[in-house]
Simulated assay, not measured.
Amino acid sequence: MKKTAITKDQQNALTPNAVLQDLLNGNRRFVEGIPEGSDNASLINQTTTGQYPKAVVLSCIDSRVPVETILDQAIGDIFVARVAGNFENTDILGSLEYSCNVAGSKLILVLGHESCGAVKAACDGVELGNITAMLENIKPAVRKSVNEIEGEANSSNKEFVAKTVENNVRLTIERIRTKSPILAEMEDFGEIAIVGGVYSLHTGKVMIL
Rank of each mutant, 00 (worst) to 15 (best):
residue 3 K to G: 13
residue 4 T to G: 11
residue 7 T to F: 14
residue 12 N to E: 15
residue 13 A to C: 08
residue 14 L to D: 09
residue 15 T to V: 06
residue 16 P to S: 06
residue 19 V to S: 07
residue 22 D to F: 11
residue 27 N to A: 07
residue 27 N to H: 02
residue 27 N to K: 05
residue 28 R to D: 13
residue 28 R to M: 10
residue 34 I to T: 15
residue 36 E to V: 09
residue 37 G to W: 08
residue 44 I to T: 09
residue 45 N to R: 12
residue 52 Y to F: 15
residue 56 V to K: 00
residue 76 G to E: 11
residue 76 G to Q: 08
residue 84 A to D: 03
residue 87 F to W: 08
residue 90 T to K: 11
residue 90 T to E: 14
residue 92 I to D: 02
residue 93 L to T: 03
residue 95 S to Q: 00
residue 96 L to M: 01
residue 99 S to E: 04
residue 102 V to C: 00
residue 104 G to A: 09
residue 105 S to R: 04
residue 108 I to N: 06
residue 114 E to F: 08
residue 114 E to R: 04
residue 119 V to D: 01
residue 120 K to L: 12
residue 126 V to R: 05
residue 127 E to H: 10
residue 130 N to F: 14
residue 130 N to H: 14
residue 132 T to G: 15
residue 132 T to P: 13
residue 132 T to K: 14
residue 133 A to V: 12
residue 134 M to E: 13
residue 135 L to V: 09
residue 141 A to Q: 04
residue 142 V to F: 00
residue 143 R to V: 10
residue 147 N to K: 14
residue 151 G to N: 08
residue 152 E to G: 08
residue 153 A to G: 09
residue 157 N to L: 08
residue 164 T to W: 03
residue 165 V to N: 08
residue 167 N to G: 06
residue 168 N to C: 02
residue 171 L to K: 04
residue 172 T to G: 05
residue 178 T to G: 04
residue 179 K to Q: 12
residue 192 I to K: 02
residue 193 A to I: 02
residue 195 V to M: 04
residue 197 G to R: 01
residue 200 S to H: 14
residue 204 G to N: 10
residue 207 M to L: 10
